[in-house]
Simulated scan of single mutants.
Amino acid sequence: AGSLITWDVGDLVVGDSSTLFMVVQVGNDVVTGTVLVNDRYGVQAGQTVTRPATPPVTTTVYGRPVLLLTKEAAPSSVEPKQTLRYTLRYTNAGTEDAFQVRITDVFPADLILRGWSATPALTQLSASPLAWDVGGLPIGAGGTIWITGYVPPTIGVPSLINQAAIVGQGLEPVSVTLQTLIGGPKYAYLPLIVKGFEALPNLIVASIAVSPTTPVAGQATVISVTIRNVGNVSTRDPFWVDLYVDPSHAPQPGELWNDVSTYGKAWLVYDALAPGESLVLTTLDPDDPQNPDARYSNWPGWFVTPGDHVLYARVDTYEGPDGWIAELDEGDNGYGPVTVTVTGTAVTATEAPAPLPRERPEGDR
């Protein structure tokens, strides 16, 4: 039930006036559509009633979604050749469901993206900037996104700036910016003597891309793997790159795609990669450019079944855990998982001869 509020205005001379304001706070448990009624009011003086009571004033309560976004980095400062993991947490703290919610993340250009995951699962809208479709977000609902990056040995900036934002239908974007320092204070003493400097390449997988991003089972699909040399000298010898489609486990150093997967792709790379240079390999490229008829892959050109499929890639996979290329860091050759959602119904695919040869040529440059 409502309350009766009375104000004592005091004396009013002829022609004078006074204004009264009343501010109320709507409780969090009031649902959308509730009608608040400010009942009749009147003005009464000591001598007589100067104005009759007025009709009630009604106000309809409308809820509003409130989107919140936080971001953390672990560790808070990093060194070259380290892995950096961002954690984004989002929620709807308002009193109404949010719709058409999207999250974007401007990933630092100097940081190498290794992959991302989310709970609940999200649909990726773009890779640069990273963007996800959250869809509808009910009251109190939220989720978490994890993004993993690699700090290359040759990074030349003192810090990494990362900005993320969340926006919904009819709402202003909410953004958060995070700065991560590269190492601590560094000092140089003259004369400068360099000892133990290693002049080596360092091969990594920079990204995995799928076109179209949400394919239908049986639809022609191209998978691209971008590799990069983040070392300080060029590669001199050929090396192999493997793409793993739905492997039985996360591929380990020295494991080829056909050790852990039914479907996969292998490329023999002859080109020398200079420091900082990238190379894009696609499932349309031959396994061995110098011997196009040789077969070391089993990729029919499309996904056979609908559902979520998981992709990994590794560079310098053959032979043994360290491959053929001596590198600054032998432990950063992998990338993934990347999840691809396939729609439609299952189709038939031609299986590769069983088993495909595990032995591969070294190649001559």
Results as ranks from 00 to 15, higher is better:
277 E>A: 14
126 S>I: 03
203 L>Q: 00
246 D>E: 04
95 T>E: 10
228 R>Y: 09
164 A>Y: 04
149 G>D: 07
23 V>I: 05
89 R>L: 08
68 L>V: 15
1 A>H: 13
219 Q>L: 01
69 L>G: 09
53 A>S: 12
28 N>L: 08
149 G>V: 09
175 S>G: 14
290 Q>P: 01
17 S>K: 11
351 E>N: 10
244 Y>L: 02
208 I>V: 14
263 Y>H: 12
172 E>Y: 14
148 T>Q: 09
322 D>H: 03
346 A>M: 04
244 Y>I: 05
276 G>H: 05
198 E>N: 07
89 R>M: 12
100 Q>M: 12
44 Q>G: 10
326 A>N: 10
129 P>F: 04
204 I>K: 01
150 Y>N: 02
263 Y>C: 02
126 S>A: 13
324 W>E: 02
312 Y>S: 08
94 G>V: 06
14 V>C: 06
38 N>V: 10
345 T>M: 08
231 G>F: 00
12 L>N: 09
243 L>F: 04
58 T>Q: 14
144 T>N: 09
71 K>V: 08
305 T>Q: 11
147 I>Y: 06
180 T>G: 10
127 A>K: 05
47 Q>M: 14
267 W>R: 01
60 T>F: 05
5 I>D: 09
365 R>K: 06
160 L>Q: 10
269 V>P: 01
28 N>M: 08
271 D>Q: 13
18 S>I: 13
192 L>R: 06
117 S>F: 04
308 D>V: 15
307 G>F: 13
3 S>K: 11
286 P>H: 02
140 G>C: 06
221 T>D: 01
146 W>K: 13
15 G>C: 11
271 D>G: 03
4 L>D: 13
311 L>N: 04
32 T>S: 15
79 E>K: 12
81 K>I: 13
197 F>N: 11
316 D>V: 00
152 P>C: 05
330 E>F: 01
83 T>R: 07
49 V>L: 10
195 K>V: 13
324 W>A: 08
43 V>S: 10
283 T>G: 05
168 G>I: 07
311 L>I: 06
127 A>V: 06
356 L>W: 00
312 Y>G: 02
334 G>D: 04
158 P>S: 13
16 D>E: 15
251 P>Q: 04
251 P>N: 02
212 P>I: 08
24 V>F: 15
228 R>L: 09
307 G>L: 03
47 Q>H: 02
240 W>T: 00
285 D>K: 01
264 G>D: 02
16 D>I: 09
26 V>K: 07
261 S>F: 00
122 L>R: 02
111 L>A: 10
112 I>T: 12
341 T>E: 09
157 V>K: 10
352 A>G: 13
224 S>V: 01
223 I>L: 11
319 E>Y: 06
126 S>F: 04
363 G>K: 11
278 S>Y: 03
40 R>D: 05
301 G>D: 13
249 H>T: 07
75 P>C: 05
252 Q>K: 14
273 L>W: 00
262 T>G: 11
10 G>P: 11
342 V>C: 03
154 T>Y: 12
27 G>N: 14
313 A>K: 01
171 L>R: 03
310 V>I: 13
45 A>M: 15
191 P>G: 09
83 T>Q: 10
328 L>C: 05
231 G>P: 06
297 S>L: 02
262 T>D: 07
235 T>I: 04
57 V>A: 11
87 T>R: 15
301 G>Y: 00
250 A>R: 11
319 E>H: 03
